[in-house]
Design a protein around this nucleic acid. Structure first.
Lengths: 204, 204
DNA sequence: TTTTTGGTATGATAGCCATCATATGAAAAG
DNA sequence: CTTTTCATATGATGGCTATCATACCAAAAA
């Protein structure tokens, strides 16, 4: 037998992470498979042993490479006050005006949503599932997991959480296109509105 | 002398309009110059007699091809009640859930903002100026033009208008990526919020 | 009608891209 | 140590892209 199976798995994960970085930086259409592999410290040879196509890789990135979801999933507070504080901190940092550069580099929702919209069914499904998980994380409490939170929430609460998520992502997408003060202040206003919304959402 | 100068101008406008359509449909990076010229009923030969580069064409599209701005600029009401009604109708149609397809095809803000964010300085400047004009149109009243509206508005009102615009554009960008009911309801909620905001903005 | 002018078409160039075919080499199993 | 196995590297292919050079041909001016 050749190299261990876990070695392959680790390499696959490395390619996935590299793809996320390069896609977010340059966009999906403008990124070559060679560039992804180079970012991972490899050459194009092995790529198709791990992913059937560039678009399948994109779908995989959209399915799993979301720092915001990871941070929300890592909340550990027991009391609902602490939970609310943690959530506020994560969303507040995420929408902080001076973090726009890093966020854009690091957040797939902010950087890749528009690219996902032009993808095939597989890509769009992956994005949709990730968005749903984000909404679930926003609805979640210390006592429930993501699926429970989604299943138990009223359709009204689900819509509010989805609106919150869409507003925040949309604000980052728009803010990334302009650098004038107008957008910086708009981002600050949106940030305040989002923090208010999450309070209302987690208070009930 | 060869063909009239106005003929060249008309051809240039035809290329510009064709570019807008194809860019919005396929995205900037995925669109070839040949495809733009074919959409305009021409071949690639004459392109560089009209625009110095593909990216310059993109900047030109971002500077001028915004249906939303055109519709807002066409408002003609005298009374502030009629003005508010017209504005509500334009924004309401723009954010109507069942218009998402056509809007995405027709609205450069919804379709091209993310692409503009990855463009060069020229592209970003063109997008920024268009966004500013959109904000000016939102602040405008029957008595003022865009520049006056921008100059006279308090920075607070400017920020509110920019937030409104960013929320609406962002919602459309996000909604274009998913087709589930979650986003459809979120879009409806955002639409209601935007209409409320524009009322507040135009009431003062 | 002839000439001139410049917008447009055709053809070319140089480079890039996604994907595949083959070669290589390292490590695990014997 | 030898053999096997497969992840990865190298090289190739067919196609696409932005841009340029040249050729053509309509129309305006003479």
């Amino acid at each position: 037998m050749p190299l261990s199976a876990e070695h392959k798995e680790r390499t696959r994960a490395r390619i996935l992470a590299a793809a996320g970085r390069v896609f977010r930086r340059q966009g999906y259409a403008a990124t070559a498979v060679d560039a992804v592999m180079a970012e991972a410290g490899l050459t194009r040879g092995g790529f198709y042993a791990h992913f059937p196509s560039k678009e399948a890789l994109f779908a995989e990135v959209l399915a799993h490479d979301h720092g915001l979801i990871r941070m929300l999933a890592a909340r550990r507070a027991r009391s609902s006050a602490g939970w609310r504080r943690q959530t506020r901190r994560i969303l507040g940092d995420w929408l902080a005006p001076d973090h726009l550069g890093p966020v854009r580099e690091g957040c797939s929702f902010a950087a890749l949503t528009a690219d996902a919209a032009r993808g095939g069914p597989e890509v769009r499904r992956a994005w949709g599932l990730a968005f749903e998980r984000l909404v679930g994380e926003l609805l979640r409490t210390p006592a429930t997991d993501v699926d429970q939170a989604l299943a138990m929430a009223s359709s009204e609460r689900r819509a509010l959480a989805a609106q919150l998520a869409a507003n925040a992502i949309g604000m980052l997408v728009v803010a990334a296109a302009g650098e004038d003060g107008l957008l910086r202040t708009a981002q600050a206003v949106t940030r305040a509105a989002v923090l208010e919304q999450i309070d209302r959402l987690l208070a009930s």
